[in-house]
Amino acid sequence: MTGINFLHNNSQSQTFLLLGFQGLYSYRFLVFAIFIIVYTFILCGNVLIILVIVSNGLLHSPMYFFLCNLSLLEIVCTTEIIPAILQILVRNQIRLSLFGCFVQLYLFGTFSATESFLLTVMSYDRYLAICRPLHYSSIMHFRICCFLVLASWTSSFLIISFVIGFLSQQDFCRQINVVDHFFCDLVPVMSLSCSDTSTVKMAIYLSSPFSLISPFLFIATTYVSIIRSVLNIQSVTGKKKAFSTCSSHLTVVSIYYITLFMMYVVPTNGSSLELNKVLSLLYTVITPTLNPFIYSLNNREIKSGIHLSLNWKIKKENKVPI
């Protein structure tokens, strides 16, 4: 409660100034158009995936239920980030209150952690389907699927609340806090604190094993088992069919953790600030742009569902009333 009262009491007096991409201001209209196109593609791609899965009874399975939730997560996550980028491009900078900055930080952290958990749940689903096919239906039923999705969201809220709770106790001494970034990210905001940040860092170290390290190790372990099972299949056709069911997920997981690894390994001080923004852009914008393309390109069921939906629409439009 103390942290919440602190944010409310100081949200009107303190301001966070997001600088965004100062070097691109001369090309802001071109960059603005590119981001509009990218944002439209993300929305249309993920909405299309959701509609195809919901409308096609053959896709009403746990794997596609989790994919629907992942697509929904991509929509809300990019909607939280890209509109802010568009405002920065138009105004060259934007101002957020202390409370507004913390809300953005909280939502982004929650969405990121939820994506990590959802990818973990999807890897468990693929492990059961390939390594324990006889027990798949009895284990991965609808109630369990709903529980796993709800647990992913709830765990993310709790973990990020733990970190934000400590961060909210920090003192920000400046009236205007300049953030050389395009959104309120944890490290840039924490660097502006004029008090001891050791408790915040400790909270991050304590929460990281739950939100990042454990999910990564679990996914790696499940795919080791999956690869072993696939290699034990005698027919080449069987191997291809088994691996095709998890190739899209494996591609998305690889991109997700590679970008996170690059973000945390590259230092955030000095001349690397611009590089850090580029890596953040890769994680927050480029990766969500690729995900619908990856799932629709590598997944025969999704492509078939899209073709069926398009054919049904064409037949409906061409139908002559009697």
Rank of each mutant, 00 (worst) to 15 (best):
C184L: 03
F99V: 08
S161E: 01
F142R: 07
I160V: 14
L167F: 02
L105I: 13
N92Y: 14
T110L: 12
V163Q: 12
L118E: 04
V90Y: 10
C184A: 10
C145W: 01
L58T: 07
C184I: 03
I144K: 02
W153K: 06
Q169I: 11
R132L: 11
L134D: 10
C131N: 01
L98C: 07
S71V: 09
D180M: 05
T154R: 01
L105Y: 06
S156K: 00
M140E: 13
L70Y: 08
T154G: 05
I82T: 09
S155L: 14
C131A: 12
F102E: 13
D180C: 10
I164K: 01
R91S: 15
D180E: 12
R143H: 01
R143C: 09
M122C: 09
C184E: 06
L59E: 02
S152C: 03
P62I: 10
H60W: 06
T120Q: 05
S112D: 11
F111E: 10
C145A: 10
R132I: 01
S61P: 09
L73W: 03
A151W: 00
Q93D: 10
F166G: 12
Q93F: 08
L148A: 13
L118K: 01
T114W: 03
E80K: 00
L58C: 14
I75L: 15
W153Y: 11
L98M: 13
F142C: 09
Q170H: 06
Y64W: 09
T120F: 02
L119I: 01
Q87T: 06
D125P: 00
Y106D: 03
G57K: 12
L134S: 09
I139L: 06
L96F: 04
L59D: 04
T154N: 06
F99G: 14
I82E: 09
Q169G: 15
Q175Y: 04
Y127T: 00
C101M: 07
E80P: 00
F182Q: 04
P133F: 01
F102C: 13
F172R: 03
F108D: 13
E115P: 00
I85G: 05
L158P: 01
V76C: 13
F142H: 06
V103N: 14
L134Y: 01
R174P: 08
P83R: 07
A84P: 03
A113D: 02
V178T: 11
L158S: 11
I164E: 12
A129F: 07
I75H: 09
T78N: 07
L73V: 11
I85T: 08
P62L: 09
F166N: 13
Y124H: 08
L67G: 06
L73H: 08
L134G: 04
G57H: 13
H60C: 02
I82R: 08
C173Q: 08
F111M: 06
P83H: 06
H181M: 09
L72M: 15
F172S: 13
F172I: 11
E115H: 03
I88H: 07
I139T: 01
I164M: 14
N92E: 15
H60E: 04
I75K: 10
L72Y: 07
C146K: 00
N56T: 07
T79D: 14
F111C: 15
T154Q: 10
F172P: 05
L59H: 02
V103L: 15
F166C: 12
